[in-house]
């Protein structure tokens, strides 16, 4: 079956550790279909009680930012300190903020 392995698409796995938390990316795996990927994810990534919920997503369906565009994508935010709420001082006497 070794030639079949190459046919199996890659899936990205997201696990929610417990209720109230977000699903977090934990790794990837190969599987023939979505149901298979879900079960493989259960066996690979939740065997030590890591999660209460699992998502699997076909890796090919993820659109990712390119590393070479890192500068144009993220650097302009560097000097916009006013985007952080801590930039502003709250005037004396303001309530309900």
């Amino acid at each position: 079956m070794s030639e079949r392995m190459d046919d199996w698409p890659l899936w990205e796995v997201f696990v929610r550790a417990r209720r109230g938390l977000s699903h977090v990316h934990v790794g990837s795996l190969h599987a023939a279909d979505a149901e298979h990927a879900l079960r493989n994810a259960r066996d690979l990534y939740t065997r030590r009680q890591e999660g209460v919920s699992v998502w699997v997503v076909p890796a090919a369906r993820i659109t990712a930012s390119a590393p070479e565009e890192k500068g144009a994508f993220f650097d302009p935010a560097d000097d916009k300190v006013y985007r952080h709420p801590t930039f502003y001082t709250v005037p004396e006497g303001v309530e309900h903020l």
């Binding site: 079949r4 190969h30 066996d43 690979l44 065997r47």
Partner: peptide
């Protein structure tokens, strides 16, 4: 096992 992920599944 025929495949790495299946190896873990069967071991479990």
């Amino acid at each position: 096992a025929p495949q790495l992920e299946e190896d873990v599944a069967l071991s479990n």
